[in-house]
Each structure stands twice: as C-alpha cells, then as structure tokens.
Amino acid sequence: MKDTEKSLRRAGAAWAAAALGALLALPAFAQISAAIPDDFSGVWTRDPMRGNLPSMKAMPTDKVFTLADGSPIPLLPAAEKIYRERVAQSLTEHVFATTQSRCLPIGTPANMMGAPYPVQFVLRPEFAVILFEEGWGFRPIYMNGTHPERIFPGFFGHSIGHWEGKTLVLDTVALRADTTLNATGLPHSTNMRVIERLSRSDPDTLVDQIEIRDPETYSKPFVFTSVFTKTDVFHKREEPMIEYICEDSRIQVTPDGRQTYGDEK
C-alpha cells in the first residue's frame, strides 16, 4: 500500500515537472507559429486545367509556343530548335520520351503541375518537405538555408525557402537537363534557377507562381502558375496518399521514344 502511495506521489511529481516544462516551452511554441506565417501543411491536389503552360492539347498549333494568356515563351534560337524537334516527334506515333515516360522522376518544377495525384506539404520552421504521391518522391526545403557549393544536378534539385509575409518563397538549383518543364518538352539547362512563390488565394486554393531563370535557354525570366486545391474528396478529411511506385511493367519506352509491349500470351 505504501509502495503504491509512493509511486503515485512520484507520478504526481513527474506530471508537475512535465507541466512546468510545458510552461517553459510556451515561448518556443509561440515562435513556431510566428515562423510559419501561413501553415498550409496538408494534402493538396494539382489542378492540370488551371496551369498556364502549353499542354499536349496545344500540340498541333502554335499554342505550344505561348503561355495561356498568349504571351510568347522567350525561347532562345537553339532552345527553340530543340523544342520544335520534340513537338514534331510527339505528333508522330512515337512519343517524346520524357524522363517520366521511362519511370524516372518528372523533375522540378514539372512535379508541381499537372498530374492527377495529390501532393502533401509538411511545413516546419526550419525545414519543409513536399511529398509526391506520383513516383513516391519528395522535395526537401531547407528554410533560411543556402545552396551547397558542391552539388550535382538531380531530378528534384536543391531547394531553400523563406517567408515573405504569408508567401513561401522557394529557390531551387541543381536540376538535370534531361527533364522538361512540361509534357510538350520545354527544355532547360542545368544552370536553371527556379523561384516559386506559394500563397493561398483562399483557404482551399494554393497558387504556385513559378519563375524560370535560365539565360542559357530563355532570353528573359518568365513566370507560369500551378494551382492546388485542398483535398476533402471522398471523406470529411484529407485524401490519404496512396503508394505509387513506377514499375513500367509492360510498356517500355526507349530514350528515342519507341514503345514495346510485354504482352501476356
């Protein structure tokens, strides 16, 4: 009986210590909310109908060379030649073999647009991460960080972030040149820098203004947008992410765009 009393007293002391600790930690909590001016953490869908880069639908027309508002995409002559070749290839029975068509990641910033799979933002004061259902990939964002001096180009790149008011600004470098900005094949170099400004236009709509700075490919920076909608689709809660590993189990797309079937007999 005495032992029980003792352990109860010990438990009481532990709770008191925990409560005191929590009180002391309060300023830290306050700091966290101040460090995330607009916490849009959660699962969002990308709305391919509301972006303004040319889509495959623009294919047979000159619309592949303009944004949705009709403004020309400022391709430099060499880049325009590459782009024209890709569009021409896609108009044949072959495809233009994007990295995605070969089960590789689609790359930043194309991963912020277009596909019918959700994206989850996890925002913390010192670190943020964007989780992609498609390809089961992620983009780490080092808040208030710097780009490393030694880095090789990759699919997701290296992203740093900071807040400007309620806008999360992302700065991404180190992107490999075999990914494209969109499905019609807009090219870029490994020296591309992508500046994204993510902010909510209303509680359920997140707009990503994506600025491309790539003087090797484009004569001047240009901006396009991607729109996300908060999920609450089949339940009164967030849409769960479903595992998506690209297996490419049947149709193989070769780098030159040929497709082969692996039919079961």
Partner: peptide, 15 residues
C-alpha cells in the same frame, strides 16, 4: 484531373 489523365490529352502522361 482524371479526365485529363485518361483522355490522353494530359499535361503529363506516362506514354
């Protein structure tokens, strides 16, 4: 999104 994915006129498609 699904319409775009399935009609084959997508911003992105596997093939």
């Amino acid at each position: 999104a699904l319409t775009v994915a399935i009609t084959g006129a997508p911003a992105v498609a596997h093939h």
